[in-house]
Nucleic acid binder design. Structure first.
Lengths: 201, 201
DNA sequence: GTCTATATTTGGATAGAC
DNA sequence: GTCTATCCAAATATAGAC
């Protein structure tokens, strides 16, 4: 139960993930899950005795692992900060399929999703923000600024996925991700009010 | 059919909105809608012969009107730009109930929602971005920069609502909205690279 | 482990009385 | 306009053969 081990199980969970991502927890029927997986409903229940809820948890665990490997892990290497952020951006771009894939955070965070799933989601978001903050702190920002930028980044990624989906265009997401590494390392905004050309220190 | 006229109808639609916002389109059953409205299912069908889909459209139309009045309208007054943005932020804060209310854009933009509903959503998001861009353009930004900031703002609001909901905290949303007016009018970022610790061109 | 077939419950939607 | 009662389809879940 911790997680599937065979290769075919990974493919299976990917199929379930695709279905859930598209229509959410309640919006995805067992018939759709079965058809997406290429299995009969009874076969799904053999692998996931806990039914739909257990399938959602397996999907969440698998995508969480994949996200950790593709997006978080690059942040923890010994490369230069700008290089780490660039690799994180690359990982995000492929993980979300250039904005075509919804994030489970948006999809599974509503009340229609079983509590255990939402609880793990909460922890995952917190870890994501923490990892980013750590990386920005290493890059020279003080704790406060690093935390602020980390949370703002997660917010923007989620928002860009929503807007891209709502508009039916990948651009809002791809544009955001492409600019992320540069924006994240940009010097703090000049906080006093003054007009746009005369910068100081 | 265009829209309900009596006062009690407005309350009714608000109840339906609360239910849909909580669990999404597929996640909200007619039993829940009826109980939320304090009516029997058959009574709902009397008001909305088109069933659940028509209820969702009515909710969308009503919330769209409310959003236009509370968030968009303040942008079109003759007040100073900073004042208009402050009023928009106030409107957003109350419209989203300090982050406790989900936005229909996140909730209704997935495939499980009927196409007509999603189509109008798309138009609404586009109008929102356009109105903001117009306002920023009036404030002195060139078209490109105004459009960029407008889209980024909508992205951030959507993302902050998602993150707030996922974490179960209002702060990410409230913090964002409080800082919005100032950030929106801040001078463009210094685009030349320069170190925060040891960066290079 | 996977299938077909079926049980059981819930969901969306109507009929018809008041 | 709202109710109770009911229909029908779909959804979740299980039984049992292979």
């Amino acid at each position: 139960m911790p997680r599937p081990q065979s290769l075919s199980d990974e493919r299976l969970v990917d199929s379930l993930a695709a279905a859930f991502r598209l229509s959410g927890y309640e919006g995805t029927s067992l018939a759709e899950l079965a058809s997406s997986a290429g299995l009969a409903k009874a076969a799904l229940y053999h692998r996931f005795p806990g039914g739909k809820a257990e399938m959602a948890e397996a999907v969440e665990a698998a995508l969480g692992d994949e996200f950790a490997a593709r997006v978080i892990a690059p942040l923890t290497t010994t490369a230069a900060a700008s290089e780490r952020l660039r690799q994180m951006a690359d990982g995000m771009m492929s993980f979300y399929a250039e904005g075509r894939h919804a994030c489970l955070v948006e999809i599974f965070s509503i009340a229609a999703t079983p509590e255990p799933v939402r609880e793990r989601l909460r922890a995952g978001v917190a870890r994501w923000i923490a990892a980013l903050a750590k990386s920005l702190s290493d890059a020279g920002f003080d704790e406060t600024e690093a935390g602020r930028r980390a949370e703002d980044t997660v917010i923007r990624v989620q928002g860009a996925l929503v807007v891209s989906r709502a508009l039916g265009e990948r651009r809002p997401f791809t544009e955001l991700v492409e600019n992320l590494p540069e924006q994240l390392l940009a010097p703090p905004a000049v906080d006093r009010n003054h007009r746009s050309s005369g910068e100081r220190q």
